[in-house]
Amino acid sequence: MQKQVRPSPKRTAFIASLFLTLSLLLLAPLPLVHAQSAAPDSKAIKWSGEGLKLELQAMPLDLVRAFFLGRGFAAKDADFIAQTGCIFRSAIGNNGVTNSDQPIAIELANWRTIRASQRQAVRTRQDWAKIWETRTLSDSAKVAFHWALFPTTQNYQSSDYNWGMISFALPPGTRFDLEVHWLQGGVKKIKMLKNLECGK
């Protein structure tokens, strides 16, 4: 019943050398092309309270490009995500401390970025899916993109969490505040996170 997952040494060596070559080909041009957009020393924003635990960190543009190139995206599409997505990596879930018997619910579509009094919704998986309809993406890229993004809706019991990217659809380097919404035991909660900055 149990299968042994043991590739032959010959196959492993071939795969390693193939992947090394591809990785070098993919990565080599990046520092030259994008040398002016050095990664900022972005610190992770961490917050925990009222059932929610959250970590957010802006991803530098080169890292966003590298991640999606590695997932089968064409260079133009990886660059499109980097330039328009304002991608943050995130880990969000139930903090297991405050009323930990009560599940929390997150609806990403309710979150708002605020800059110069302008409120804007998060770009969710569903929003991105509409964008991809107008561009040609491989099936593998579509699958990777869907699962790389943070879920739009999710319920979390204590110790549950999700990992994923959140897209704020703002230009690189934009500073903004973020209104975070969630429910704990059906009760609405809001937390304002100040002075976030998109990667550049």
Partner: peptide, 22 residues
């Protein structure tokens, strides 16, 4: 494993001596 790319999966599993069905 969600998504393809068997080669990357092979090498990752080999690194960790995984022998459960994938």
């Amino acid at each position: 494993h969600v998504g393809g790319n068997e080669d990357k999966i092979w090498s990752f599993l080999t690194d960790f001596n995984v022998d459960f069905p994938v």
